[in-house]
Computed example of a mutant assay.
Amino acid sequence: MTRSLQGKVALVTGAGHGIGRASARLMAARGAIVAINDLKEEFVADCVADIKGLGGRAVPVAVNVATREGMREAVARTRETGGRFDILVNNAAWVRYQAVADIAPETVDRMLVIGFKSVIWGIQAAVEAMDGKGGSIVNVASTAGLRSAANSVVYSGIKSGVMGITRAAAAELGAQRIRVNAVAPSAIPTEGTARHRSAERDAKRIAATPLGRLGTVDDIARAICYLASDESDFITGQTLAVDGGVTFSNL
């Protein structure tokens, strides 16, 4: 396996399971020291043990990155452990799908704090920690920000906003040799999405996907690692749809 992240120090938020965990595992396999962030300490400990068992290097950072102070602490602890700070993956999110009439203020507030504000606080803290040496920030958006469905007003709005943050931050931070990109996964089977899935719904998604299958967390992890690595060092401000072609297909 390529060692494209050898010597890099990375923080992955929401890395206790799903896309975040797969990304952290692959980053470690490619040579990075990876700080594992999640709100639940048991998820963090399990992921760290998993990576170490595979011969990788990982450290636990179980703090709440939904606050500016929590994100700054997570980044600072990562930098202190690794002696530098090269990569931030803004993956943490909390999601509820609701019809317009059912959207509650507390739902909007929680989704905005974790899925939108934390991206801003993460970029802010990462810029300081990168200390003028450059680096890569990868934000996890969604194809829901490109093509939406019913019951996703809040989610689609937030993920569209994450794409906007990505472009604006890339334009501002390029002079500091900091690249900012996003990945936009389609519906990916994870522990967190299980309650929204069914055999019938999966079959419809597969039928609408040119590549004829659902994506996996490893598909997204590979894209994240590519954008995090120097292999993509002339790419910034982009949102990469990792969706088997479904977003731009009329199947």
Rank of each mutant, 00 (worst) to 15 (best):
L5Q: 11
K8R: 14
A10S: 12
L11G: 02
G14L: 08
A24S: 08
I33M: 15
I33K: 15
E42D: 14
A45M: 06
C47P: 05
V48Q: 03
I51A: 07
G53D: 02
R57W: 06
R57L: 03
P60W: 00
P60F: 10
N64A: 05
A66S: 09
R68V: 01
G70Y: 01
V75Y: 14
E80D: 14
V89F: 13
N91T: 05
W94P: 04
A104E: 15
P105N: 02
P105M: 02
V108Q: 08
M111T: 02
I114Y: 14
F116N: 07
K117M: 04
S118D: 11
I120N: 15
W121A: 09
G122W: 02
G122L: 00
G122I: 00
A125L: 09
E128G: 07
D131H: 02
L146C: 05
A150Y: 07
A150N: 10
I158N: 01
K159H: 13
V162W: 12
T166R: 07
A170E: 09
A170Q: 07
E172C: 06
N181A: 11
A182C: 13
R195F: 08
H196V: 03
A203H: 00
R205P: 01
P210Q: 01
R213Q: 06
D219P: 01
R222C: 02
R222Y: 03
C225Q: 10
Y226L: 14
E231F: 03
D233I: 03
Q238A: 13
L240Y: 09
A241P: 11
V242M: 01
G245T: 00
T247E: 10
